[in-house]
Write a protein that binds this DNA or RNA. Sequence first.
DNA 1: CGCACCCCCTGCCGGC
DNA 2: TGCCGGCAGGGGGTGC
Length: 269
Amino acid sequence: MPELPEVEVIRQSLADSVGRHIVDIEVRESRLRKPVDAMRLRSSIGQQIVGLDRKGKYLIARLSDHRILVLHFGMSGTVRLVKGAWAWDRHDHVQLVLDGDLRWVLNDPRRFGLLWVGSESEAPELSRLGPDALSAEFTAPMLFGATRRSKRAVKNVLLDQRVVAGVGNIYANEALFLAGIRPSRAAHRLSRPAVARLHEALRATLREAIAAGGSSIADFRDGRGRTGYFQLQFRVYDRCGEPCLQCGGTIRRAVHAGRSSFYCPRCQH
DNA sequence: CGCACCCCCTGCCGGC
DNA sequence: TGCCGGCAGGGGGTGC
């Protein structure tokens, strides 16, 4: 679920946490994508959260001892910011208690998420990431360079977090539709203007999605329990068999790299 | 190098 | 009504 827009929406909803100290951490279920090291995690008790950042799909809490607390939400993860005591609910795995009687409750039914604390330089996941899709470093010329070097389908390039961080299946499909490019097009055959269109479409889609509170397909909610509504604006994602909003043709579904692609065969070439 | 295919895990939906 | 297969926003690994 959480791609860049959803993680950004979560980040914004947790803003009240900045400046607070971590006073306790309780781990009920450590079997996430990588086992949660409760002892290591609890070494951050007493630290102050001095900032809340995001890179790609990773949420990063900066601690006063200069370490970082890294969260990734996999397919089904969320974090709720609650006030007062909290009784463990189904699929709640970790509670992070802050001063001011606040707490983060990490819930992740599929347990593909990640929770880790350490120094930024030794965070293996972060070091492999390309520039964040909404950062100034992610430019059209940079994306053009990446497409030139790759014979893969352009959608697979967009999904490659080493090229650009934060794009997942929904927004890759949506951006390719806006740019009029088929997901299966060989990346290195795209023209410079086509890549520039794609770059612009991608950033516009991500910004629109953030403004809409993200996409709530099954049950995505932000830290305050609010749903997003960008799913109401999907132009192609999960619209197989439905009419193209631009030409009235029929949206098709195909599978690339094990993921569903949705596109309009008349509008995308 | 790139992809097809597997894994991790739970939940939901459609077909029978 | 109930069961079963397929599929789902993530990432990682293997072997061809």
